[in-house]
Computed example of a mutant assay.
Amino acid sequence: MSSAHAMERSPEASSAHTPPVVFVVDDDISVRESLEAMIRFAGFRAETFASAQAFLQCPLAMVPNCLVLDVSLPDLSGLDLQNLIASERTDMPIIFITGYGDVPMTVRAMKAGAVEFLTKPFEDQVLLDAIRHGLERSRVALAEKAGLNALQERYASLSPREREVMALVASGLLNMQVGGELGISEITVKAHRGQVMRKMNARSPTW
């Protein structure tokens, strides 16, 4: 890794929002310290760990994040850690770093969703570019997750009858047809539709 940094602090550092976090897992303390300094200088928050087990004790991040992960670790390998957290940390892209690498290892990591696979030594800018790419992917994933959670919460607020009306309207039935299916008046169907639109925050005039 190059020790040269830009003389002016990166624009990310001036953000008023909570900075994204970059996790680093590497058993070499000199690598951890070097990466931590570089990441903080770029304006991101850095959290470092000497082992996979230590990282697993860390709670899930609620801000855009990514993981810079060494392949060779004293307990779990980086590839094993990738598999272990694949389902629970879907919004955390992984950037692998290694002192040695081969094609099968790289292919395995990339097939499992890694953003990048870098062999030491590498330039700081190469890693920073990969980190920024990973953080953007994380930002998108978190936004999608938040949108889905909000939608699920709104749906959970519907009454059983409102859910029935919603399903029938979504299938293309007219108010009169929905009323016939449910044994209620067209006026009642319209009232339920209005409630569904309000609770689901729907804006379509056809709903």
Results as ranks from 00 to 15, higher is better:
residue 145 K to I: 08
residue 55 F to I: 13
residue 140 V to P: 05
residue 165 V to A: 11
residue 64 P to Q: 05
residue 163 R to H: 09
residue 38 M to A: 15
residue 23 F to E: 10
residue 49 F to M: 14
residue 197 M to D: 05
residue 78 G to T: 08
residue 49 F to Q: 15
residue 143 A to K: 03
residue 154 R to M: 00
residue 101 G to R: 04
residue 43 G to L: 12
residue 87 S to K: 13
residue 145 K to M: 09
residue 84 L to E: 08
residue 49 F to P: 12
residue 126 V to W: 06
residue 131 I to C: 00
residue 114 A to F: 01
residue 126 V to D: 01
residue 81 L to Y: 08
residue 15 S to E: 07
residue 197 M to P: 01
residue 15 S to W: 13
residue 135 L to T: 03
residue 119 T to W: 04
residue 131 I to Y: 02
residue 28 D to E: 11
residue 122 F to L: 00
residue 43 G to F: 03
residue 195 Q to E: 12
residue 103 V to Q: 14
residue 119 T to A: 07
residue 74 P to G: 05
residue 200 M to V: 04
residue 61 A to R: 14
residue 180 G to R: 09
residue 59 P to T: 12
residue 47 E to D: 12
residue 117 F to W: 01
residue 59 P to S: 11
residue 35 L to G: 09
residue 41 F to A: 11
residue 62 M to L: 13
residue 144 E to K: 13
residue 42 A to C: 05
residue 82 Q to W: 02
residue 198 R to M: 12
residue 130 A to D: 00
residue 70 D to C: 00
residue 20 P to Q: 05
residue 5 H to A: 09
residue 137 R to F: 00
residue 150 A to W: 01
residue 74 P to D: 09
residue 168 L to K: 04
residue 61 A to Q: 09
residue 198 R to P: 01
residue 152 Q to G: 03
residue 173 L to S: 08
residue 42 A to N: 10
residue 164 E to R: 07
residue 185 S to G: 15
residue 156 A to K: 13
residue 164 E to G: 00
residue 152 Q to A: 10
residue 122 F to I: 00
residue 109 A to M: 10
residue 120 K to N: 13
residue 200 M to P: 01
residue 161 R to T: 14
residue 63 V to D: 10
residue 65 N to M: 00
residue 100 Y to W: 09
residue 92 M to K: 08
residue 187 I to K: 14
residue 91 D to H: 14
residue 77 S to I: 03
residue 142 L to P: 01
residue 73 L to S: 09
residue 51 S to Q: 11
residue 108 R to E: 15
residue 51 S to V: 04
residue 175 N to F: 12
residue 140 V to M: 11
residue 143 A to H: 02
residue 51 S to F: 13
residue 133 H to M: 07
residue 169 V to G: 00
residue 46 A to P: 03
residue 79 L to S: 14
residue 103 V to A: 13
residue 14 S to G: 02
residue 89 R to L: 13
residue 145 K to D: 08
residue 76 L to E: 15
residue 105 M to C: 08
residue 49 F to T: 11
residue 133 H to A: 08
residue 182 L to C: 01
residue 146 A to L: 07
residue 29 I to V: 11
residue 163 R to Y: 06
residue 55 F to D: 15
residue 11 P to G: 05
residue 206 T to W: 11
residue 44 F to W: 15
residue 33 E to F: 05
residue 61 A to L: 11
residue 7 M to C: 00
residue 51 S to Y: 12
residue 26 D to R: 03
residue 99 G to D: 03
residue 173 L to R: 08
residue 204 S to E: 09
residue 132 R to A: 04
residue 65 N to H: 15
residue 43 G to W: 09
residue 97 I to D: 00
residue 73 L to M: 12
residue 58 C to M: 11
residue 112 A to R: 10
residue 104 P to Q: 10
residue 124 D to R: 13
residue 154 R to T: 01
residue 28 D to W: 04
residue 113 G to R: 01
residue 25 V to N: 06
